[in-house]
């Protein structure tokens, strides 16, 4: 419980820093911290396989991609530029309204709580079985989507005229 509170606090602080830091490189590093603390929340909620996937795919893959893109597109002077546009006040108001609306809607919804008893062996076995039986079709479609995204990224970012 204490660990969960700690992870949640780190996640919120890191998320605020991701959207408010001036240097986009520091934002990417705080995004890595945020993703790691979300993985910690997953571990605390008995979703160990998902926590490992989160660390592997997000921290190992997407953060590296973002860091590459940041280093390929930023100039020395860009750290001094203003990073937010003039809609700041309006955006803060809209976001506060949205968060309070979601929370209010959640409080009004009657939810029947029944605890999920965690498998002592972890969720990896049951997740794998479900992925290859009940969810086999979405699993295959996801692999096709990944292939298309891979080819699309190569076509978009590759050198032209060769």
């Amino acid at each position: 419980m204490l660990l969960l509170l700690l992870f949640a606090a780190i996640a919120i602080i890191a998320a605020i820093l991701v959207v408010s830091m001036k240097n986009i490189m520091h934002c990417a590093l705080f995004l890595a911290l945020f993703l790691l603390s979300v993985a910690g929340i997953f571990f605390c909620l008995d979703a160990d396989f998902l926590g490992i996937v989160q660390i592997l795919v997000y921290v190992g893959g997407i953060i590296v991609l973002i860091l590459f893109a940041v280093m390929l597109t930023s100039r020395v002077s860009s750290a001094l530029l203003e990073q937010t546009n003039e809609q700041k006040g309006l955006a803060i108001t809209a976001c506060l309204l949205l968060a309070s609306a979601i929370t209010a809607a959640a409080f009004r919804t009657p939810l029947v709580t029944s605890f999920y008893t965690a498998d002592p062996e972890g969720t990896t076995r049951s997740t794998g079985e479900l992925l290859l039986t009940v969810y086999a079709l979405p699993f295959e479609i996801a692999s096709v989507v990944l292939l298309v995204a891979l080819i699309g990224a190569i076509v978009l970012a590759g050198k032209k005229g060769e």
Binding site: E82, A91, A94, L96, L98
Partner: peptide, 13 residues
Amino acid sequence: IFAIGIYGALTRR
């Protein structure tokens, strides 16, 4: 966290 993400998507240049 979702609201923070919306804020970032709306205001980032």
